[in-house]
Amino acid sequence: MNKKLSPGRRAYTAGMKALMYASTAAIGALVLLLIGYVLYRGIPNITWKFLTMAPSILNDTIGIWPDILNSIYVVIATIIIVLPLGVCAAVYLSEYASNKRLVSIIEYAAETLSGIPSIIYGLVGMLFFCEFLKMQTTLMAGALTLVIMNLPTVMRTTQESLKTVPQSYREGAFGLGAGKWRVIRTVVLPGCVDGVITGCILSVGRILGESAALLFTAGIAHVVNGFFMGLKSSGATLTVALYIYAKERGEFGVAFAIAAILMLLTLIINLSAEAVARSFKNKRRI
C-alpha cells in the first residue's frame, strides 16, 4: 500500500497538471495584458474636449462626440425593434407552437442566424435595406441589419427563462378560466423578465462591438445629429470610427482612446449581465 504511483503515472499526472496550469495562466495573463495595454495607451488621450467635440478638418482636431451619439442611436433603435420581436418569437415557440416541425424549423433558423458572420450581414443589409428598400447608407439601415443579427440572442435567453416558469403557474391561471393571452400577460411574461434583460444586455454588447456589419450599412460620417435626423443619415459608431482612425488615417492615439472606452463598456456590460443572472438566481431560490 505504501508503494508509490508508478513513475509513468506520476509523470502523466504532473505533465497534464502543468499543461492545464500553463494554459489557464496564459489566458489569465492575456486578458490582463490586453486590458492593461489598451487602457494604458488609450486613457491619456481621453479628454473632455475629445469626448464632446466633433472632428474638424479646419482646426485639425478630432472628437468622438458624433460617434458616441451614433452608437447610442443604433443601440436604441436596434433594441426597440429586436426586443419585442425576439420575445414574441420565444413566447410563440414555448407557449403556442403545437406543430413540432414548425418549432424545429424556427429553432434551426435561429441557430443558423447566430452562426452567420457579420460581414455577410453587412453585405445582405446593404443589398436589402440600403439598395432594395432605398434607405441609403443610414444608421437605420445599420440598426435593422443588427436586428436580424441579435434576434437569435434575445430569443434564446427569453426561451431559456420561459422554461423556468413552472408549468403549475400556467395551469393555475388556466384553471381560473383565464384566456391564453391573459395567462401569458399576467403569468408567463413576468416570469421571463430576467431572460429579456440578459438578452438585452448581451445585445447591447454585441451592437457596441460590431463593425463589419455596419461599415457598409451605416457608413462612416462623423456629424452630430439629433436622434431621428441621425437615423436618417449616415454615421460611424465608435467601433467603426476606431477602424477608420486606425486603418485609414493612422491616428493610433484616437483609436486607442476609443478602444479604451469600448473596453470599459465591455467590462461594465459583462459585470451587469453577471449581476442580473445572480440576482435572479437568488430570487428563484426563495
Binding site: G209, A212, T239, L242, A246, A259, T266, I269
Partner: peptide
C-alpha cells in the same frame, strides 16, 4: 474569475483585437 475573464475576452470588439494586433 476565469469565467469572467473568458466572457470579457468574448465581449471585446474585434476591432480592438485588430488594433492591438496591428501595433503589437
Amino acid at each position: 474569475v476565469m469565467q469572467s475573464a473568458v466572457s470579457l475576452l468574448a465581449g471585446i470588439p474585434s476591432v480592438v483585437y485588430g488594433l492591438v494586433g496591428m501595433l503589437v
